[in-house]
């Protein structure tokens, strides 16, 4: 399981540590630099957990304010994971307040014109492959919204944010075995959803390529 977030260079890590140190000393400018650096993944996690752009904005803003007020409690490690912990807790609180499954799909976020430019594209794919990939992503976004909240959080942290098991365990406060169990069930549920809803010319071909 590759850790995409660990691909930063030592220079980036040093600059990040310097920003964190300045922020801990009360430098808001440095903390705002950290916000600019991490606001997209934090917002993405909130959006996929809450399936509501407005709720995701609120949770993200509150997460950064809370992080600023409690930055002296940051004990090192990955700063992004620490931010994820805060925003995940806020998102869970919001989900508990709702007391129900998210009513809004991720279509609103997918309709965002800025989002298309962020979606990664494989190197040198054919136009058909790009279309299939886009369709499959759209199916998966919808399938994510159908998952139970606790399953969705785990699979997003693992497969979208590419966090390791122990990081997910730390963020969610769940035992490692529970994290693995829920991840496998979420993946299996997503597969079943896609297989039952996708057009034959999209998913079967893609799945067939993997065989």
């Amino acid at each position: 399981m590759a850790d995409r977030s660990s691909a930063s260079t030592p220079v980036d890590d040093a600059a990040l540590e310097a920003l964190i140190a300045r922020a801990r000393d009360g430098d808001l400018t440095a903390f705002n630099s950290l916000i600019v650096r991490f606001q997209d993944p934090v917002y993405s996690l909130a959006l996929r957990m809450l399936a509501s752009p407005q709720a995701a904005e609120d949770a993200t803003q509150e997460a950064f304010i809370r992080a600023w007020r409690r930055i002296d409690t940051f004990r090192g490690g990955r700063f992004q994971s620490w931010l994820f912990t805060i925003v995940a807790n806020l998102s869970r609180d919001e989900l508990r307040r709702r007391g129900r499954r998210p009513q809004t799909s991720l279509d609103a976020a997918r309709d965002d014109p800025d989002r298309a430019s962020l979606d990664p594209v494989d190197d040198g794919p054919s136009p058909e492959s790009v279309a299939e990939q886009g369709d499959l992503r759209a199916l998966l976004e919808d399938a994510l919204a159908q998952l139970p909240d606790d399953w969705r959080e785990i699979v997003v942290l693992s497969d979208v944010q590419d966090l390791a098991y122990d990081e997910i365990s730390t963020i969610t406060g769940l035992p490692l075995g529970t994290v693995k169990s829920r991840l496998s069930r979420a993946r299996g549920r997503l597969r079943d959803i896609i297989s039952s809803t996708a057009e034959p010319n999209v998913v079967p071909d893609r799945l067939g390529e993997r065989r």
């Binding site: 934090v42 993405s44 996929r48 993200t60 976020a109 989002r115 962020l118 997003v156 979208v160």
Partner: peptide
């Protein structure tokens, strides 16, 4: 899912 990446704030 790994290709979903992030959504811009």
């Amino acid at each position: 899912l790994a290709t979903l990446e992030v959504v811009r704030a």
